[in-house]
């Protein structure tokens, strides 16, 4: 599903160049739930942004679902993001003047789907994350966990090939975190490929595989025994 070969990325900081990713190689197959772990500055978010086509690599190859992502213009990238990828952010990134339903329906708007079909589909996904009754509430009327679930519904609504989650529990307390992870595991059980960037051990262990990143290199890539979040959720 995802394949990267010898990926490099540097940031220009004034006159200094900061080499963030120093030649990464790895593959993710369909249906995997991968945690990318590392301390801050290890390059994990940069990696995720490149995978999400929010940022571009300086060097190396990135193949998403058989398509080489290279020299893509913004329009093309936007279409790919919309079609292949779903994003979940630490800070939720909901549009604050749109209701939960409108937020979830937004990616479908950019697909050119009709209004009615959009809303029906969005409502279906809101129901899946257990927020059907909250569909007409604005983000600031929702709790953190609810917001993140709206964001997950929004990421899911286009039925993307890969879900990318950047510290999705970073702004949540542990109980809510586990609830969100429980939801993510359920989605993964349905066969969706998910990549989670985190620096929290317990969250990482709820995935099926952990990629350890340090100073821009993969230091360890291991399959683990998944901890089910439902064990912690009453």
């Amino acid at each position: 599903m995802i394949e990267i070969k010898d990926l490099h990325k540097s940031y220009q900081m004034g006159s200094n160049s900061l080499h963030v990713l120093k030649g990464l190689n790895f593959k993710v197959s369909e249906g995997e739930l991968v945690a990318i772990m590392g301390s801050s500055g290890s390059g994990k978010s940069t990696l995720l942004n490149i995978l999400g086509m929010l940022d571009v690599a300086d060097d190396g190859e990135y193949i998403l679902d058989g398509v080489t992502i290279k020299n893509m213009n913004e329009t093309k990238a936007a279409q790919y993001r919309n079609k292949f990828l779903g994003f979940i952010f630490q800070s939720f990134n909901l549009i604050n003047y749109k209701t939960a339903l409108e937020n979830v329906a937004l990616p479908l708007y950019y697909q050119g789907m009709g209004r009615k079909a959009r809303q029906e589909k969005a409502l279906k996904y809101l129901e899946q994350v257990g927020l059907k009754e909250w569909s007409h509430h604005l983000p600031n009327e929702l709790s953190g966990g609810q917001k993140q679930r709206v964001a997950i519904a929004r990421a899911m609504v286009t039925e993307p090939k890969v879900l990318l989650a950047d510290e999705l529990t970073g702004a949540l307390d542990s109980k809510t975190s586990y609830e969100v992870m429980d939801l993510l595991q359920t989605i993964n059980d349905l066969g969706n490929t998910i990549l989670v960037v985190t620096h929290e051990e317990d969250i990482a262990h709820m995935c099926k595989r952990i990629v350890h990143l340090r100073d821009g290199i993969i230091v360890k890539d291991e399959k683990i025994k998944q901890v089910r979040a439902s064990e912690y959720v009453q």
Partner: peptide, 13 residues
Amino acid sequence: KELGIRKALGATP
């Protein structure tokens, strides 16, 4: 920021 979100969700320039 809103535009960033929209772009991440597939809004073309």
